[in-house]
Amino acid sequence: MINFNGTIQDNNTILNANNRGFAYGDALFETIKTSYGKLLFWEDHYFRLMASMRILRMEIPMNFNMEFLESEINKTLEAKGLTSSSARVKLTVYRNEGGLYLPETNNISFIIDAKPLPNDFYLISENAYEVDLFKDYYISPSLLSTLKTNNKSLNVVGSIFAKENGLENCLTLNTNKNVVEALNGNVFIVKGNHIKTPPLSDGCLKGIMRKQLLDIIKDIPEYTLEESSISAFELQKADEIFLTNTIVGIQPITKYRKKKFLNIVSKALIQKLNVKMRLG
């Protein structure tokens, strides 16, 4: 069951060949973690979605406020029996069908789906997590590359590459050969007490968890934070590398090529992240 424009219905009755999200990737989505009906970092998700819709020139309905969408997400959670556990919610917004590359309308529809998650809080995994660079294709840094759209061919092909090579993930590069992000999240590197992450101008996703970590790190006096380009050479010199997204929270990388990494800073940050989650 899914929520389609406010109606709970079977998910096999929605998609057709003229759906612009399917035909042209003319869609945006937000992946939201919920805990016992609470939408984590909902305000940040909402404002990112609104900004992204404006960039793609989608018509934002008058009723598309925070309260309306939150109630629709909760309606979906209730229909799927997920109000008393943690869940992964996907909110997709797409331009209504009509036209070819040039749409006939900028009006939109939305779909909300939810699936259960095993953990209520963010946990640091102690499992091996090896990554390498994905160099078959490059991200072109622009405002569009920072949006969470349905155009994810690089991420799909990169994920297949990672599986074929026995990797847990890959780090992507932009056309300037700088490290941008992972296939499913933002990247941070740690050297001593210095923490560094690529700037949005390098083409990385404007991640919600990235924003939470930036806010947390800025309030810790023993760490210095830098948003600037990361070269592949810096990965070998780092003490720690970790990835972030809203579902996992923080995922430490244990190995990149021949270099193995610690997770001391990751563990310290995830404790503060869980505090922020409870208070937010």
Rank of each mutant, 00 (worst) to 15 (best):
E59W: 00
F64D: 09
L82N: 14
N186K: 02
V190T: 00
G249T: 01
C204V: 04
I8V: 12
K260R: 12
N193M: 06
A238D: 06
E181D: 12
G25T: 02
V179L: 11
M209P: 00
K38I: 08
I208C: 04
G185C: 13
I111R: 00
Y223I: 06
L147W: 11
T172Y: 02
I270N: 04
K255F: 01
G249A: 03
T224I: 04
I253K: 00
I220S: 04
S145E: 13
M62F: 00
L205R: 01
F242W: 13
G203S: 07
N193C: 06
K191E: 08
A87D: 07
T224E: 07
R48T: 05
S266C: 07
G185A: 09
G21Y: 00
I270S: 02
A23P: 05
N63P: 00
D44F: 00
S228Q: 09
S145W: 03
N184E: 14
T31L: 15
F233Y: 14
S229D: 08
T7I: 03
P198M: 05
L40Y: 01
K196W: 02
E234Q: 15
E72M: 08
L144T: 05
E43D: 15
K115A: 07
L40F: 02
V187T: 04
T7L: 10
F161A: 14
S228Y: 05
A238W: 00
Y24W: 13
N169C: 11
V248C: 06
Y129C: 12
N96S: 12
G192L: 10
L28G: 03
T224K: 11
D26R: 07
L171A: 08
C204H: 02
S35K: 08
Q236Y: 05
I270C: 01
L147K: 14
K196G: 01
C204Y: 00
L144R: 06
L147M: 15
K177E: 13
E130R: 11
F64Y: 13
K80S: 09
S266Q: 08
V248L: 12
K237V: 03
D26Q: 10
D202H: 04
E70A: 13
K237Y: 03
I60S: 06
E164C: 07
S145P: 13
L123A: 09
L123G: 07
H194K: 13
R48N: 12
L100S: 07
L49T: 02
V180D: 10
I230K: 01
L147R: 14
V265A: 04
